[in-house]
Design a binder for these strands. Structure first.
Lengths: 315, 315
DNA sequence: GTGAAAGCGCTAACAA
DNA sequence: TTGTTAGCGCTTTCAC
């Protein structure tokens, strides 16, 4: 059960390991010897050890991805985008989920470092930035998603604009009594809320109520309290869309008549349900992130994507 | 920009590399020297190279996962389950998507082999089995998902039972004119169709019409042709659920009154949409797969999960 | 308890 | 065009 090594191949082909290596990596070899080597490779079922190879390169060809929530459609599309570019660059993708546990986030980034990934895409909190920056200073490109971080590459959404878009749509629909459900999460939430408030004010609408929510199970109560004063519910994070929608329909409310509903991030069923959203180009963001990793630009790159409104009638 | 090695740490701590290695891996070291080593590790920001480590072990600690479709909720839950178990075992997860391209499937499995993964979970076609078996014979546990394969571990669903469940539910609802939309995919499809047909016959119902469909864009026409003779549409693969549902609602049909709808695989929005499904425990299946990889059983393990009907009124 | 030295599987100079 | 010889960063005997 011992694995076949380059030495075994060399022995069988009657050449040196260097020659085998050259055949494998496209060096200068006579066609006749190359043929012998290929034959040996074939019959022995040799599979070159990518790990050992990486030792020389100093790093592996793998791209590391640390996401905080594997069940969110946003991250899923992001991963698809990354995977696409990685596959084209012949880079395997190493995936780690953290379930938004800061301790796990840091640990996973560290693990990626130990795996000597060629680059890293992270959707983590600031907690993990220190280590990411150390990796960056070692020449490992690190791309932060959904926020900016000094000294690191970043891909983010223009969150203030997202809020503005929401406000503009609400104003257009004549929705004046607005309640917001926000995640207790990250800078994104704050900025979207800001944009939303500024936008509503700009359109001469009343300041919205807002409830911060950590998990799905807090959503129902939050929605209930918002509905006492409002006829429109806006959700600033795609992560809570299902829960908010459930809270509304569970009350027997239909959209847009009984209540208006507007949320972040497009998803496959939004069309069927007629839910209006402000979408971010998550797949494209993943692609860009991976492209940065592959390109290894010397200076920190900051890419900001613009959100789009997709009106489907739910408000 | 040269990386810190174990040699650097050793030099700074005034000990040999062997001692540093022992401190890192829990060998017998005096507490006083261990302290010095830890101090050096700390100040130098040393991050041990997992790649080099794996050379000695003969293989890495990574678990490889090859999925055919990153956008399907089934695979997503599967990955979550795998990731969970892998994280608990301190194993990174290497993910590869193939977009159901047989050539890419084989290539990805080969790539995983070259990465010397400790084990493999694949959702690929038979095409890739040969290589998987070779890996298995080299001591790499390989788990096939959604079908059985001689000589390999497998996790699958009792697909015939899934068909029966569907048939029983249709019979109970008095749905006698049934049309089936199937993927042109894999053995699963065939078995579910079988179970469905047998079940319908068993309940004294007419033999169903069936249309095979490769992609989303063929679905609308398929549904249209089925609706000429039938008032109920059954979909035997979760992958096509969105497309079939869209085809129905685009015709202005409402469920369950105008048309009955029943499909495979539960998904987050099924509740909100009131769609009845026959569900498979995808997350649990992922967990079991990873557990097999971690346990490395000597003989091929075949696990078959049972499907469950979740009735929500769409038929 | 610790270090010297050999070697894991592979690549890259340098000769031949 | 090919083989020889050093390593890559780490672990692991085997002495001391």
């Amino acid at each position: 059960m011992k694995r076949v090594t380059i030495g075994d191949v060399a022995a069988r082909a009657g050449v040196s390991t260097a020659t085998v290596s050259r055949v494998l990596n496209g060096g200068l070899v006579a066609e006749s010897t190359a043929a012998k080597v290929r034959e040996a490779t074939e019959t022995l079922g040799y599979s070159p050890n990518a790990l050992t190879r990486s030792i020389f390169a100093g790093r592996s060809s793998t791209i590391g991805v640390v996401v905080r929530d594997l069940s969110s459609p946003f991250y899923l599309d992001l991963i698809r985008g990354i995977d696409e570019v990685a596959a084209a660059a012949d880079s395997p993708v190493m995936l780690a989920n953290t379930d938004r546990d800061p301790a796990r986030e840091a640990a996973q980034v560290r693990a990626m470092d130990q795996q000597r990934v060629r680059g890293l895409v992270i959707t983590t909190d600031e907690t993990a930035d220190d280590h990411a920056r150390r990796m960056a200073s070692n020449g490992t490109p690190c791309v932060v998603i959904a926020r900016t971080a000094p000294g690191l590459h970043s891909i983010s959404l223009d969150d203030v604009a997202a809020g503005w878009l929401m406000a503009a749509h609400l104003a257009e629909r004549g929705r004046s009594r607005v309640g917001i459900v926000s995640g207790r999460d990250r800078p994104t939430q704050v900025k979207r809320g800001e944009g939303l408030r500024l936008g509503l004010a700009g359109h001469g609408l009343r300041a919205p109520d807002e409830v911060l929510v950590a998990n799905d199970d807090e959503v129902d109560e939050a929605v209930g309290s918002l509905l006492r004063r409002n006829d429109t519910v806006v959700c600033t994070t795609g992560r809570l869309t299902v829960a908010v929608h459930t809270a509304l329909t569970a009350r027997g409310l239909t959209m847009p008549d009984d209540v208006g509903f507007l949320t972040m991030d497009d998803f496959p069923w939004a069309g069927a349900l007629g839910i209006s959203v402000v979408a971010q180009p998550s797949y494209e963001m993943g692609r860009r992130a991976a492209e940065i990793v592959v390109a290894e630009p010397a200076d920190p790159v900051e890419v900001v994507f613009e959100p789009t409104l997709i009106a489907r009638g739910s408000c």
